[in-house]
């Protein structure tokens, strides 16, 4: 049995491809849901962290620190296997989305905070002096400028979330990796795993290139 027919077995690949595509849809579903929920949660946390009173700020900081420290796999297993003991029973999909969102929100909050803090004080002062309310200062003046700054790190975070969706296979979620391992067992051939790896690359490499491109463009703009 030569290397090619072991790892790049075309008939096996064609056979497993529909299964892999289903897995890809699940992966994208988990990833997109977690990314969007994480963005909303992170923005909310960042604003609280910057402008709420000292108690709330302290709580938010504790949240951010804890969820940036805990390994995602540990969190996912706690959500899926431990929470049922206190009556919280989440489906594999929502377990994965919950764990990914909790962590993504913590990272996103730090990204947004850095972005908001990078806006010159004069922008806050000029908008306050015009009588704009805090809400409009944020939505009209600060966030539109901060978005430019945070797009590269946010895209990086999206890449991480999409990669981490593979952990959902641990809680029996039929995502891309899980489908690939099942197809591999069925066909007694590792080609589906290689296929899954290639699909991950096709999904993520353009995003990695995009971040590199953005970072280069922004650093050039700044000099």
């Amino acid at each position: 049995m030569d290397l090619f027919s072991t790892f790049f077995n075309i008939p096996v690949l064609m056979q497993s491809l529909p299964q892999l595509m289903n897995g890809l849809l699940v992966t994208i579903g988990i990833g997109a849901t977690s990314i969007i929920a994480g963005l909303i949660g992170g923005l909310f946390l960042a604003v609280l962290r910057l402008y709420a009173g000292p108690v709330v700020t302290g709580l938010v900081r504790a949240y951010i620190d804890v969820f940036r420290s805990i390994p995602l796999l540990v969190l996912l297993i706690i959500v899926y296997y431990a929470l049922p003991f206190v009556g919280i029973r989440l489906s594999p999909f929502f377990s994965a989305v919950t764990a990914l969102t909790l962590v993504s929100a913590a990272y996103t909050a730090e990204i947004f905070r850095a972005g908001i803090e990078a806006i010159p004080k004069g922008q806050f002062e000029a908008s306050a002096a015009l009588g704009l309310s805090n809400r409009y200062i944020m939505t009209d003046i600060i966030l539109p400028q901060a978005i430019r700054i945070v797009i590269p790190p946010l895209t990086n975070n999206c890449i991480n979330v999409l990669k981490d969706t593979a952990l959902a296979s641990v809680v029996a979620m039929p995502d891309l990796l899980k489908q690939a391992t099942q197809a591999q067992a069925l066909s007694a051939n590792p080609t589906p795993l290689i296929g899954a790896a290639v699909i991950y690359l096709i999904l993520l490499l353009p995003m990695v290139r995009y971040v590199a491109h953005l970072e280069k463009r922004f650093s050039r703009g700044r000099s």
Binding site: P120, G122, Q123, E125, A126, S127, A129, L130, D140, I141, P144, Q145, R148
Partner: peptide, 13 residues
């Protein structure tokens, strides 16, 4: 009360 700043502080976007 309107204000004009030393560094203009126009909204660049």
């Amino acid at each position: 009360v309107g204000m004009v700043f030393q560094s203009f502080n126009l909204f660049p976007h």
